Computed example of a mutant assay.
Amino acid sequence: MLQKKTSPLKILEISGDTGSTEVIARNLAKVWKSEGHEVEVYAPVKSRFDFKAINYLYKNRKNFDLIHAHLGRACMLAGQMGKALDIPTIATLHGFQKAKHYRYISNFTAVSAAVKKHFVAQGVPSENIQVIHNGFDPSIRTENSAYRIGHLDKNELGLKKIIGTVGTLTQIKNQKLLIEAMPLVIESFPETILLIAGEGELRCELQKQIKKLNLEKHVYLLGHINIENFYHQIDLYAQASIREGFCMPLLEAMACGVPVITTPCAGPEEFITNGKDGIILDEISPTVMSDKIIRLLENKELREKLGQQAYKNSERLTWERQAALYEKVIRKAIR
């Protein structure tokens, strides 16, 4: 929170994409602006030689106390420009990239201890990285009156048991494991459907897998959707990732009181307490995933217990709280 005795900050949030990291940048900006700070968001930086971004930074060099950068190419460009223009720069480490992309920056935050460990192993001093988990926007808890999810509406969903997942369709997100788990789930709960929100390079491969397993009436690839109502329409959320720096959709589902299941994929293990506010699998396996899904679907009391505790525990990770932690790091960097 902005303290009475501190002066307003002037911050540039700069991101290498228009996806999750831009969402994070805009959520931080939203909080800081409400507290009286001046914040601009620039996205996306298309490369370390993005002349449009370079020109923007040069023209506005006197307007910022600090540059806060997200993702490799934005951090590479911001680090170089920050040095040239004498503007302090902080990079937030979101995943398991190579440290060389951040060589022009010396102040870091990491979205999880797992990400910090990855960069320390590459030679980044531990004392230069502060772990600050991502947050969620409480407005996501407000259900929209419209029941449509992608191309589906409430009537099409009917009284089915609904499993949801959100993420780019890639090998690392591993949606194929969830699809592989579905036949076993359907044996116990024939009316169950899996909704996969997101787009990506594996769409065609996943469509073929769905067809091969005769799951066309049970698994739906929704593409890009407005997720503000997504979490309110599902019975449980499942994440099958091989590795995650954090995993925003898991936190958002928890914040909406949805029981969650995840593979042991690093980041989520830092904000989920297994068996209390979510379930973390012992291994990355479709059989283990289907067993846990079935266990939750057949036990309404357990679903409600996990969902209620998830809702309560997520309160410690609102963007307002996390922005206050970032502000401390920023003020230290600009002294």
Score class of each variant (00 low, 15 high):
Asn226Ala: 07
Val219Ile: 11
Asn229Pro: 08
Arg26Ile: 15
Glu244Gln: 05
Val166Lys: 02
Ala197Val: 02
Cys75Gly: 11
Glu13Ile: 00
Pro183Leu: 04
Val41His: 03
Ile284Arg: 00
Gly198Phe: 03
Asn60Met: 04
Ile54Gln: 10
Thr109Ser: 10
Gly16Met: 12
Glu156His: 14
Ile234Asn: 01
Arg141Ala: 05
Val45Cys: 06
Pro286Arg: 06
Gly82Asp: 04
Gly19Tyr: 09
Arg141Phe: 01
Lys276His: 14
Gly307Gln: 05
Asn155Tyr: 08
Leu222His: 05
Asn229Phe: 09
Val166Tyr: 01
Lys161Gly: 03
Cys265Ile: 00
Leu169Trp: 03
Ile105His: 12
Ala240Gln: 01
Leu215Pro: 09
Phe136Cys: 12
Lys5Leu: 13
Tyr42Gly: 07
Gly278Glu: 09
Asn27His: 13
Met254Asp: 08
Ala146Thr: 11
Gln233Val: 00
Glu205Ala: 13
Lys211Thr: 11
Lys332Tyr: 06
Glu143Thr: 09
Ile54Cys: 11
Asn313Ile: 04
Pro264Phe: 12
Asn229Gln: 10
Arg335Val: 13
Phe49Val: 01
Leu71Tyr: 06
Lys312Cys: 07
Lys160Ser: 15
Glu283Gly: 05
Ala181Pro: 02
His37Pro: 05
Met248Asp: 00
Gly36Arg: 14
Phe136His: 09
Ile293Asn: 05
Ile279Glu: 06
Ser145Ile: 08
Glu199Val: 04
Asn155Ser: 13
Lys46Thr: 10
Ser106Arg: 13
Asp291Val: 00
Ser34Tyr: 01
Phe230Asp: 02
Gln130Gly: 00
Ile179Trp: 01
Lys300His: 10
Gln80Ala: 10
Pro259Tyr: 14
Ile129Arg: 12
Pro125His: 08
Arg303Ala: 10
Leu2Asn: 14
Pro249Tyr: 11
Leu66Cys: 15
Leu202Lys: 15
Ile227Pro: 02
Ile140Gln: 13
Glu304Phe: 06
Ile272Asn: 01
Gln130Phe: 07
Tyr237Asn: 01
Leu250Asn: 03
Lys160Ala: 12
Ser314Gly: 07
Leu195Phe: 04
Tyr56Gln: 10
Ile210Lys: 00
Pro44Met: 04
Leu152Ile: 09
Arg103Ala: 13
Ile294Arg: 12
Lys161Asn: 14
Gly167Ile: 11
Ala323Gly: 06
Leu213Phe: 05
Val111Asn: 07
His68Lys: 13
Leu57Thr: 02
Ile179Tyr: 01
Ile284Cys: 01
Phe108Asn: 12
Lys332Glu: 15
Gln308Cys: 10
Thr262Pro: 06
Glu270Gln: 13
Tyr147Val: 00
Tyr231Ala: 04
Gly150Tyr: 01
Lys30Val: 08
Gly95Pro: 09
Asp282Leu: 09
Glu228Lys: 14
Arg61Trp: 12
Ala84Pro: 00
Ser126Ala: 15
Asp291Ser: 12
Ile129Leu: 06
Val31Ile: 15
Ile334Phe: 04
Gly150Phe: 00
His232Asn: 10
Leu9Pro: 12
Val31Gln: 15
Gly198Ser: 08
Gln309Leu: 11
Gly267Cys: 08
Asn155Val: 08
Ile293Leu: 06
Ile24Trp: 03
Gly167Gln: 05
Ile284Gln: 02
Lys312Arg: 15
Ser139Leu: 08
Glu35Asn: 14
Phe96Gln: 03
Pro125Ser: 12
Asn134Thr: 03
Ile67Met: 11
Val115Glu: 03
Val124Thr: 14
Asn63Trp: 00
Glu216Pro: 03
Thr142Glu: 09
Leu195Ile: 09
Val120Gly: 09
